[in-house]
Design a binder for these strands. Sequence first.
RNA 1: AGUCGCGUAGCUCAGUGGUAGAGCACCUCCUUGACAUGGAGGUGGUCGGUGGUUCGAUCCCACUCGCGACUACCA
Length: 933
Amino acid sequence: MDKAYTPGDIERRIYERWESSGSFAPGGDGQPYCIMLPPPNVTGTLHMGHAFQHTLMDALTRWHRMRGFSALWQPGTDHAGIATQMVVERQLAAQKQSRHDLGREKFLERVWQWKAESGSTISRQMRRLGTSVDWSRDKFTMDPDLSRAVTEVFVRLHDEGLIYRGKRLVNWDPKLLTAVSDLEVISEEENGSLWHIRYPIVGGGAHVVVATTRPETLLGDTAVAVNPDDERYKALVGKQLELPLTGRTIPVIADSYVDAAFGSGCVKITPAHDFNDYEMGLRHDLPLINIFTPDAKLNENAPVQYRGMDRDEARSKIVADLEAAGLIEKIEPHKLKVPRGDRTHAVIEPYLTDQWYVKIAPLAEPALRAVEEGRTRFIPENWAKTYFEWMRNIKDWCVSRQLWWGHRIPAWYDEAGRIHVGRDEAEVRRKHSLGDAKLTQDPDVLDTWFSSALWPFSTLGWPDTTPELKKFYPTSVLVTGFDIIFFWVARMMMMGLKFMGDVPFRDVYITGLIRDEHGDKMSKSKGNVIDPLDIVDGIALNDLVAKRTTGLMQPQLAPGIEKNTRKQFPEGIAAYGTDALRFTMASLAGVSRDINFHMGRVAGYRNFCNKLWNASRFVLMTIEGQGDLVGDAELSVADRWIVSRLSSTLSRVDHALKDYRFDFATTALYEFTWYEFCDWYLELTKPVLQSETATEAQKRGTRRTLATTLEALLRALHPFMPFITEEIWQRVAPVTAPLLAAANFRGVAKQPDLVMLAPYPAATDFASDDQAEAEVGWMQKFILAVRQIRGEMDIAPSRRILLLLQNASARDTELAGKHMAWLTRLAGLESIKQLAPGEAAPESATALLGELSLLVPMAGLIDPKAEIERLTKRIAKNDSDLGKLRGKLGNENFVRNAPPDVVAADRARVAELEAQNASLAAQLERVRRMGGG
RNA sequence: AGUCGCGUAGCUCAGUGGUAGAGCACCUCCUUGACAUGGAGGUGGUCGGUGGUUCGAUCCCACUCGCGACUACCA
């Protein structure tokens, strides 16, 4: 094995082996376990959020697979209607073409072609991350079978009256020329103005003032509203006003929606261009005057001088004309929330159109109940509240989009304009006895999320009753971000309950959102995006700069981005490998909502990979050529200790993973590997293996423990770092195979070829050993105490020192004698000498281990001043602790009310500290007499 | 306005009704036969503030300050 772990070539080779062996498909007849991959956009690329979530899903899948579950991780991609169509339209625009130049059919061909070209990018990236999805079941939302499910759902919902067509105000994107759902509208505060406009009262000479943020919509006003209780305007209700610039008159109406305290207390009402006004219009039977074309230019309902103007241009002109007419009272700066399309950022226009809607209340109710009753569980459970909040206030879902890329709505119009819904044209004709009447299919497509909502069952073969559907639905867990609870999770719940009669998943694990190291969202315009594969493979600084500064929407940001990038990554990014990235991701997966990503963390786990690699190198070097591991073997206390520690680690991991605490699981494994296996156990094996007096059975016991512990550790780490564990395991497994076979381990006579198919180690596979833990614990404290003296006294590691034991108990004497070889080796001792009771000790630096004093003679080794300082510090620390404890014990309420064991523990602690301080004080006095003074 | 979350070491974060933890950073010593992507030791915190409950609060409760997210609405 090489001296350092180099991930690059190993990873590709191993993935290829896994995939070609068919090991990703659910095998065996174990309990089903299923995760649905949230389908990424087919033309997208993998970002940090994917890397994060996919790591967690892969860890869960591999963990269950190794535990004998029949585990399916279902992959697939989403057609992402708007996003994908926009990409292709942009490509066309570069050639000065629009989709209309091509026509629907040709345009769709282009999109399919683009899908074919770029669709493999994301799956290639997923493979690099070790993703163990069942590629043989890969799905795309517009595959024929999934499209069939979409049509089926639409038709059934329509037949039940849960899908209807209606004319009402929708969120209209004038750039895309399509309706979008409420969720696709992002409202953010922007600076605007509040225009106060005078509306003359008919026949009076007086006027009322209305305040508006959208003066151009004045042309569509059909009333002015006041609060019915507003004394100022009571007399005005029912009167007519002159609507400026239009020659129309409009009534003053009273409606309690109006807040008398805001502005002048008079509101202009434009029912065709504002959601609240629309509602008010319905209440008061007001006419609707639509003044916009679909691309938000003024139409023929506007006075002729404004027709054809863009809404912004019209605003300026109208304000100027009002001003000229003396009808502007004032203009104030005003902050307002501007609704924009989440894809186009165009200002969304409430617009009156015919659209298809899903009647949501009857679907939401069971979905709400399922979570209330715990049939689906949110983790962390707080997210259930967010879900409830939305589901209780949910509004009908506009599902039609005036796009071309997507699932065509299965509705046909006859020449009389009647609508017929059916699975296909033939069925429609049959069902409605339409003969060969001329039928035209609805040109619209469905919201992308409509098909996504069916994902948990459409991918498993619904509407057919397939074996997979029976086996894997409901799925085990959904892993996703909180940003799509409404878009996706809630809708899957509704559709799953409606069409499968059961929840789509038992658990919903909501992950945090990956941000940059400052907590900022990663975005192209901030220039802080990191491509996960650049962490895996590394990237040179100049390439990184180029990647971050090309294709910017605002090219003027490039210099700043370049500067920050060069500052943050002066050397570019090193090739840390997939396992380091994955371990980092898992270690970040706690309960918090925002996750700040630090490259330093990855470097740390890259080092961890290297540590594991080198520990394995040591184990293999130690074992190879040293004979058969099967045979008489005697386990040392260290051997029994590491096995016991492994057992308790595995128990921690098991609990952590059952709670989706990937951070705890990785910490447990990291601590065991580095701090127990490497720092202690490997060092403890050396004196045994190099000993001239140890028996062959003792050496075999240690070699065997080294091998089996490492082998189990590799299996335990595998869900988190699949590549390095597979690579090392391939070398270790042949060594341990005969042992496992001899023990008929877990009834598995034959070891599998891959660690990914090996059984996950269980805590119960390894013996707990309290006695070994106690003895090794004693040794550790002994060694640490000596090291502390060495460290603080700056004694070179190469310098062997003499250690004197004073006041040793029988047990101290026994353990010190029994473990002499370990103690001298790990503490860097020349020898250990036990002082007889009453025997005088030379001037020494002291450490205490309970009653036992460890003395390091100072002569020629230690500066008395340093020892005085050290002792003084220890005593001061003890005094401070003693002060607190005595205060506590002096409070009779504490002694009376606290649990007896707590009181007893504190008393014991006081006694111990007092004894220590007495001993330390005496020592201090002696050192002072000797050198200090 | 409503809902939710956060405030713990220089940084990023765990955590607990009973002696404050990790990683990174920092300081000292060390190339010793797995590993300098390493080893040994160390410095560093009134756990945002105030009050309450309790024998005891960083933890539970109330209030408060600061930060953030989401939902709705703002003429």
